[in-house]
Simulated assay, not measured.
Amino acid sequence: MQAFKSFPKIIIIKMDIATVNELPYEDFVNIFGNVVEKCPIITAAVWSRRPFGSLNALEAEISEFIDALPESGKEGILRCHPDLAGRDLQSGTLTRESREEQARAGMDALSSEEASRMARLNEEYKERFGFPFVICARMNDKANILRQLTERCRSERQVERARGVEEVKKICRVRLQALVLSDAPNKL
């Protein structure tokens, strides 16, 4: 008989916006604290803007918070993201969300040539811009990610920072959609 390692299963039940609005602060931050990678302070700040009329309104509040940050704060958000197919994936230290997103995009199944290319491009990108390459992995596959990384290494810093922030917002949207039922307006 073969022994199997048991992994805890996380069951996520999507909430409607009324339930989201009723969450106490600690629960809200625990549940939504990683919709922006490793930045629970954003959801902590947004909690006080309740009630949200819809999923789109919650997403808009997070986006507005990010947009209001100084450029250094936006870069800080980008620096919270792990390298795609990087050491965090290899060592198993990615957040649950990042691990699932990278796996879905095929980042955990790169050939040795692809992995080497990805590592080289990730380093080149970080050296050029001072923050990691960010792309919404759930909206891309490994071929497109490698193509985008190659192209974006040639971009200008200001353009890349803005592009990275827009990718963070896409990641946030996808993560929110996994937690909250689609919009049925809440009667405020």
Rank of each mutant, 00 (worst) to 15 (best):
M1F: 13
M1H: 00
Q2Y: 07
Q2N: 09
F4Y: 11
F4N: 12
P8A: 15
P8Y: 15
K9H: 15
I11Q: 14
I11E: 15
I11F: 13
N21D: 04
P24S: 13
P24G: 06
Y25D: 09
F28C: 07
N30R: 11
G33Q: 10
N34K: 06
N34A: 07
V36M: 04
K38S: 11
P40Q: 00
I41E: 14
A45T: 13
V46L: 00
V46S: 04
W47E: 12
R49H: 09
R50H: 11
L58F: 15
E59L: 04
E61L: 14
I62F: 10
E64F: 07
I66C: 11
A68P: 06
L69E: 02
P70V: 07
G73E: 03
R79S: 03
R79Y: 12
A85K: 06
A85Y: 02
T93A: 00
T95S: 01
E97R: 14
S98R: 06
G106H: 09
M107D: 01
D108Q: 01
D108N: 13
L110W: 10
S112I: 05
E113K: 12
E113Y: 02
E114I: 09
A119C: 02
E124V: 14
E124N: 15
E127K: 15
R128I: 13
R128M: 08
F129W: 00
P132Y: 01
I135E: 01
C136L: 09
N140W: 03
K142I: 01
N144H: 03
E151C: 08
R152M: 05
R154Q: 08
E156N: 06
E160C: 02
R163V: 10
R163Y: 10
G164L: 11
V165T: 12
E167W: 10
K170W: 07
R173T: 12
L181R: 02
S182L: 01
